[in-house]
């Protein structure tokens, strides 16, 4: 803020200080209503996780400091390793497929075609529809014996199509398929916004040089989209590792434990069984994994910029 210097008499120091203090108070008063709620229900719990994870605490007892015992227990917990593995598999499918699908859609829809707005709406719509409806419809579409998807696959000559959500091998692919379908419209919007930031002159220059469409994509579009791609990658990583709703509604982690993910384990341990300490330890593990993956991506980003 630039304070207007008063040309005549310099203001007395005390009133100046009072005014400045008032300014600070006014500033804080703007932030406070939101910040109080935010601090009590987000900041404190975030810090709380780091403390509770090192205690033995369930809904019947009071917390007791036990150091790393929760983490030793996690090391021997079969459910934890299964959930971690499933979450990683889910991320390994969901991240690249969604990235590719949304980037492809954005590039195709970034043309001046009649009705392109309508098409964008169509691709974006799955993202805003209610999740339970999405899960229910896909569960029925993927129904192994009579579902439309397997009917189509049989028609195409696959005599024993996958059992999808009823099979331990195919429940994760079914979830990945549904989530890619649902999420690609959202990231498409991010990529479309990113495409607007690439100067049209770059494309003109490439066209004058006689560069083909594929090469233009490779040498102009992709480098121009690098900040967007990086951001999308981070968002996708976080959302993949914390996946819960879709899994809970579609498969409840089953059949068996074949699609159990980390968030579900945290929920079961912490809220169903009331084991606050142990579930916070798993939460902390989830947080550290997400942070580590994000940091690795940051490193890659920095190196490729050089």
């Amino acid at each position: 803020m630039t304070t207007v210097p008063s040309p005549s008499v310099p203001a007395p120091v005390s009133s100046d200080r009072r005014r400045r203090r008032r300014h600070v108070l006014v500033g804080w008063s703007f932030i406070l209503p939101n910040f109080l709620g935010f601090a009590a229900l987000t900041l404190v719990p975030v810090v709380g996780t780091f403390v509770v994870a090192f205690t033995d605490w369930d809904s019947y007892s009071s917390p007791k400091w036990i150091g790393l015992a929760n983490f030793r227990r996690m090391k021997d917990d079969d459910n934890f390793w299964t959930a971690l593995q499933n979450t990683c598999w889910y991320a390994a499918g969901h991240i690249p497929l969604t990235l590719a699908a949304s980037l492809g859609l954005a590039v195709l829809l970034n043309q001046k075609l009649r009705g392109v707005g309508l098409l964008r709406t169509a691709f974006f719509f799955p993202y805003v529809t209610s999740l339970v409806a999405v899960a229910v419809v896909w569960n029925m579409l993927l129904s192994p014996d009579v579902g439309p998807v397997n009917q189509l696959l049989r028609h195409l000559g696959w005599s024993h199509p996958p059992g999808w959500t009823t099979s331990t091998d195919w429940s994760l692919p079914a979830l990945i398929l549904t989530s890619v379908w649902r999420d690609m419209g959202y990231y498409m919007v991010l990529f479309l916004a990113g495409l607007q930031t690439i100067p049209a002159e770059l494309y003109e220059a490439a066209r004058v040089d006689g560069t083909g469409a594929w090469k233009r994509f490779w040498h102009v579009t992709l480098p121009g989209l690098r900040p967007t791609t990086f951001f999308v990658l981070i968002m996708l990583t976080i959302s993949s590792f914390k996946v819960f709703d879709l899994v809970q509604v579609m498969t409840e982690g089953g059949p068996g434990r074949s699609s159990l993910v980390l968030s579900q384990l945290i929920f079961r341990e912490g809220i169903t069984h009331g084991r606050f300490g142990y579930s916070s330890a798993v939460s902390l593990a989830l947080f550290v994994i997400v942070l580590a993956v994000t940091l690795v991506q940051f490193q890659f980003q920095r190196r490729s910029e050089r």
Binding site: H23, L43, F267, F276, L284, L286, V290
Partner: peptide, 28 residues
Amino acid sequence: MRFPGRDALFVGYIATIAVPWQAYMIPQ
């Protein structure tokens, strides 16, 4: 507005956007 503590507070906000809710839902 400009006042001391503003930027530190904002960093607090930004930092938690990247933390998945599942990581702190138990203390909450």
